[in-house]
Design a binder for these strands. Sequence first.
DNA 1: GGTGAAAGCGAGGACCA
DNA 2: TGGTCCTCGCTTTCACC
Lengths: 153, 153
Amino acid sequence: MDKVDAKILSALQDDARMTVAELSERVALTSSPCWRRVKALEETGVIRGYHAELDPRRLGYDVTAFVNVMLENHRADLGDSFEIAVQGIPQVVACHNVSGRYDFMLEVVAPDLEAFGEFARNVLRTLPGVKEIYSSFSLKSIKRTRSIPIPPA
Amino acid sequence: MDKVDAKILSALQDDARMTVAELSERVALTSSPCWRRVKALEETGVIRGYHAELDPRRLGYDVTAFVNVMLENHRADLGDSFEIAVQGIPQVVACHNVSGRYDFMLEVVAPDLEAFGEFARNVLRTLPGVKEIYSSFSLKSIKRTRSIPIPPA
DNA sequence: GGTGAAAGCGAGGACCA
DNA sequence: TGGTCCTCGCTTTCACC
């Protein structure tokens, strides 16, 4: 991980479809070593994958909600089955086990508020061990780049 | 937006570097129409871009925090300057204006808890109009696919 | 909307410094 | 490590259905 790698990561984080030719120009290297660096970054797991970013609205998802979930108790198996269940629900686009008052925070997409309400009632509330949920809605997306700042060294 | 487009979106959301050749095979089309569809999806904004997904840990970010921010009042200009300020801070990887007790929810990465503490004190707390912040930390990432479910139609 | 062909370029490997 | 060269296959754009 040197400065060249950092530049490569920035560039690919910004545009995953950039060709190695263009990338190598940008980092002042010829294409072979540049290509090898990219492969190394993929193999060592620094680059986890490449994904298209889609516009939820254009796909009919007008609602993004953050759902805080509290479990009934903290037995490990309860948390585990909750986690496994959550992974299988496509509307849940992200989920973290968090510190604080609640145990989990989920990011959920839904076509509209009504659909979200139904989803919360029929799906989320019925997940194993759920005691309480508190939802808050995204009124406006200020920043949605999941871009990680690349350390200069 | 038909079934073929849906398949294309799923595939690219999963692997943005998939070649058009491979894609066209998967959706049972020849490469030209497949390519045209991809271009159309890009131009109409359904596909917003392509990004490499990086591993925060391998870049030295061991802490992901969700920071809830309450502003002093709800004057529009206060919210605006907060939003603009937030957009310029690379450690803030996502930010939403949300409903509920707090006004904004930020997702922040930091090398460790100490660095996060400093960041919260020196940067977040000093942003325009900030009255209160409440942070909760990701203890475990259960699901981090930002993948949106593709509607079947 | 779809096909097939053609030109040009990039990916990826072999090999050298 | 980085650079050069080479080849195959893909991308991209035709003209046409």
